[in-house]
Design a protein around this nucleic acid. Structure first.
Length: 776
DNA sequence: TTTTCAAGAATTTTT
DNA sequence: TTCTTGAAAA
């Protein structure tokens, strides 16, 4: 019976055996945290705890699924089935569905994703006639999100002079009005955004003691993974639920807290011992994942942080290779370096592609890496970025489905009311929104009484609106007797959505059609899976699944691929070989996170997370110049590079033919960093923080020669460049025809020419875009 | 109302 | 560079 206990070390075993009471497990990177969690749950079940009474909250759906299947391996699948496991968002969305009426919500409420929220806020800003330069929708949403995660309701906001003052000072006194309208509109649409899922859960548990008691009694054992990344709202939920039985086990690592930007509060983990009585603390300090070089190098970095819990990560693993640092000329070279190095390692060690990952700070960096990997014919997969479910064609299709499940869903309706085009223009939609607000009903309800109410819409368009309404109604009727796939199929056919995409005739259109088909297949798979698990396979449930899904969740393994992702996404994963690219000031650490000590510390933790993903070897690289916003920027190496203890690093020299060619990893060159080292060290001594803006806005150097080649390759014709376009030249434009250059102004990318065309028109064109050909 | 094209904005990180 | 927005043309 205790076979699984034998697989644990001392600290791990103690943590597993501690059955009751509040406890915290500080789990260093690679210390077998998941193993402890799964065995702990299995152990509880083997000792008479009903799985029905265990709630386990993880950070991603993927983690939940993995853990569940591992537990099933220990206790058997039928036992594991009743466990409640998932992310905060998915677990509480489920609970909210069954309790929604208490809060005045329909149980089929929609979940707005970030894009829906931003669109709604933009629309509100417009309706309130605020300047959109001052009120940037994304920023406003960020602010509202802060409020919600701190449980500041609209009313609480208006009662808090400090907040009001702060928004006044920042030049956005109307934030409160937007907040109020946003909340009202979401409510009217029967929609919750991500933050609402937590906020409304708190509301539910506070306002209805009997509901709280019910779930307290149900969840007698609560486990929270990645506790360092919980926000205040999540913290309160956990505290409320655990209050009765106090069987709360939180797991985390303060050194891996990387989500402060979305409200995560590292104090939750630092103060856990103050929140509960008699807290037992366990520390998992032995790293099983990485070579000792990597562990010690990572330690030397994280030691620079002041705010952290006391712990000492160590490993019994072998020393391994030193960490390699590569300086490259440009991001393109960086990509080639990575691709070549992966290729070499693959060949020499006979490894599959999925032994490698490339990590970066921002999604935009993936392009150069992709290009290089493609050239080398190395298969890769990108995680994150524009995810499948965020693509336009997918969102459009889903919007129809959302609308028929919840016809009050305003964002879904606005998305599809004129897509595919059916002659209902923006003006009409604007009028509908205003009228719906005025009569305090949803747009869909409004569509039922177009004749009864006084709305300034002519009869031709009214007929079109009625047609649209009837179509949605007919979908709803069909939905009652059909399964999710059949409904979706019907919608796609009836709306001619696919035909509309196809009619574009571009190669991209083909892949977009394929995406829609893939979505349909996804629905099919979903239904099958749910039937197997004997769970809800309704359309509504599918939509919830999709709203809370991330890219990791639809991972279909075919061939092994190199993983490309942001460091944030890499948390919790491990790979034999890890490449961390773009180690440059203003990129990593990010220019937007250099203002305060705590921001820099979070960036440093991020770097720590990146390093500790690696089992065998880490490669770091930085480019001396990089395109950002289409401009070439000079870069300085990241301060983090010099924070790694020197004894663990080696420099790779960037020889020209190596950067471009094939032979790269050459033992000889590891040892000759002298020249590099000197050049590397010097600019790194930066005791006083420079004003960052300056570096960011460094004069742009456009390299004419390089550009020339690139552009002309692309357009297959002679192109103009700053230096060779003069007043008086005759040029030809693909669209406007021939013309004479009247004047030239601006420099670099903003260089414009005023041209009088033969048609008589005079236009000012940006040379960057206008494909001009000199003809005389 | 719809489509097209030029101009402008944008890059942290995500459930 | 790529995506979004806005104005003008159809």
């Amino acid at each position: 019976m205790s076979s699984y206990l034998d697989e644990l070390n001392e600290a791990q075993r103690e943590a597993v055996l501690q059955k009751e009471g509040p406890m915290i497990i500080i789990a260093g990177a690679g210390s077998g945290k998941t193993r402890v969690l799964t065995y702990r749950i299995a152990h509880l079940m083997k000792n008479g705890v009903d799985p029905f009474n265990i709630l386990s909250l993880t950070f991603t759906n993927k983690a939940a699924r993995e853990m569940k299947s591992r537990i099933a391996g220990v206790v058997g699948p039928s036992e594991a089935k009743n466990l409640w496991m998932g992310t905060f968002h998915s677990v509480f969305a489920r609970i909210l569905r069954s309790e929604a009426e208490k809060l005045g919500y329909p149980s089929n409420f929609t979940i707005y994703d970030t894009q829906d929220s931003v669109r709604l806020i933009s629309s509100i800003i417009k309706e309130l006639q605020l300047e959109k330069e001052k009120y940037k929708a994304k920023q406003v949403l960020g602010r509202i999100s802060q409020f919600k995660n701190s449980l500041i309701t609209v009313r609480a906001y208006y009662q808090n002079p400090e907040l009001i003052e702060a928004d006044k000072v920042s030049g956005r006194p109307k934030i409160g009005s937007i907040y109020k309208e946003y909340v009202d509109r979401c409510f009217k649409a029967g929609a919750m955004d991500f933050d609402d899922l937590l906020l409304r859960t708190n509301e539910l548990l506070t306002r209805f003691p009997e509901v709280l008691a019910k779930y307290q009694d149900r969840f007698r054992y609560i486990l929270v993974d990645e506790y360092q990344d919980t926000n205040h709202s999540q913290y309160l939920i956990v505290r409320a639920l655990a209050d009765r039985y106090q069987n709360i086990c939180v797991v985390g690592d303060d050194s891996q807290s990387i989500y402060a930007f979305r409200g995560a509060n590292i104090k939750n983990i630092l103060n856990f011992q103050k929140d509960y009585d008699d807290v037992k603390m366990f520390k998992l300090e032995q790293n099983y994942r990485s070579s000792s070089t990597i562990v010690q190098a990572a330690n030397s970095v994280i030691d620079k942080n002041k705010t952290k819990l006391d712990k000492e990560i160590w490993t019994a693993n072998q020393e391994g290779e030193s960490i390699k640092i590569m300086r490259t000329f440009s991001e393109g070279d960086e990509g080639r370096f990575v691709a070549n190095s992966i290729f070499e390692n693959k060949m020499q060690q006979q490894l599959p592609n999925n032994s490698f990952t490339v990590l970066y700070r921002t999604n935009a960096q993936s392009r150069a890496i992709e290009d290089a990997l493609r050239k080398k014919n190395i298969k890769y997969k990108i995680y994150g970025g524009l995810s499948f479910y965020q693509r336009k064609e997918i969102k459009d299709t889903l919007a129809y489905l959302r609308l028929l499940v919840n016809p009050n869903d305003e964002e879904a309706l606005k998305r599809v009311i004129n897509y595919p085009a059916r002659g209902i223009g923006q003006t009409t939609v604007d009028r509908l929104v205003i009228a719906a607000n005025h009569y305090k009903i949803s747009i869909f309800e409004l569509l039922h009484q177009l004749d009864g109410l006084s709305i300034n819409i002519n009869s031709g368009i009214k007929a079109k609106l009625n047609n649209f309404r009837d179509m949605i109604r007919s979908f709803q009727i069909e939905a009652a007797s059909k399964n999710a796939f059949e409904v979706a199929d019907l919608v796609v056919k009836k709306t001619r959505l696919i035909r509309d995409i196809e009619s574009e005739g571009t190669p991209e259109a083909v892949s977009r059609v394929e995406n829609v088909q893939e979505l349909m297949n996804g629905i099919k798979d979903f239904i099958e899976e749910q039937h197997q698990k004997e769970e809800d396979a309704s359309l509504a449930y599918f939509l919830e699944d999709v709203a809370l899904a991330t890219d990791f969740d639809k991972d279909k393994e075919d061939v092994p691929r190199v993983s490309l992702m942001t460091i944030h996404l890499a948390k919790g994963l491990e790979f034999p070989y890890v490449y961390i690219v773009g180690l440059e000031e203003n990129l990593f650490p990010s220019a937007m996170s250099m203002n305060t000590r705590s921001e820099i510390e979070e960036e440093r933790r991020l770097f720590y997370v990146a390093l500790t993903r690696a089992q065998k070897q880490v490669y770091l690289s930085y480019a001396q110049s990089r395109y950002r916003w289409g401009k070439l920027i000079d870069c300085e190496p990241s301060r983090f590079l010099e924070e790694i203890d020197e004894k663990y690093i080696d420099f790779i020299s960037p020889k020209k033919e190596q950067a471009a060619g094939n032979k790269f990893i050459n033992k000889d060159i590891f040892g000759i960093p002298d020249e590099n080292r000197i050049r590397f060290k010097k600019p790194l001594v930066r005791k006083v923080e420079k004003p960052l803006k300056k570096t960011a806005a460094k004069p742009v150097q456009v390299k004419p020669a390089k550009n020339l080649k690139k552009l002309s390759d692309m357009q297959g014709s002679q192109n103009l460049f700053d230096h060779d376009l003069l007043q008086g030249n005759y040029v030809e434009h693909a669209k406007f025809g021939k013309g004479e250059v009247l004047s030239v102004e601006g420099t670099g990318n903003s260089k414009k020419a005023e041209i009088r065309f033969e048609s008589g028109d005079t236009k000012k064109l940006l040379l960057q875009f206008a494909k001009l050909k000199i003809i005389g």
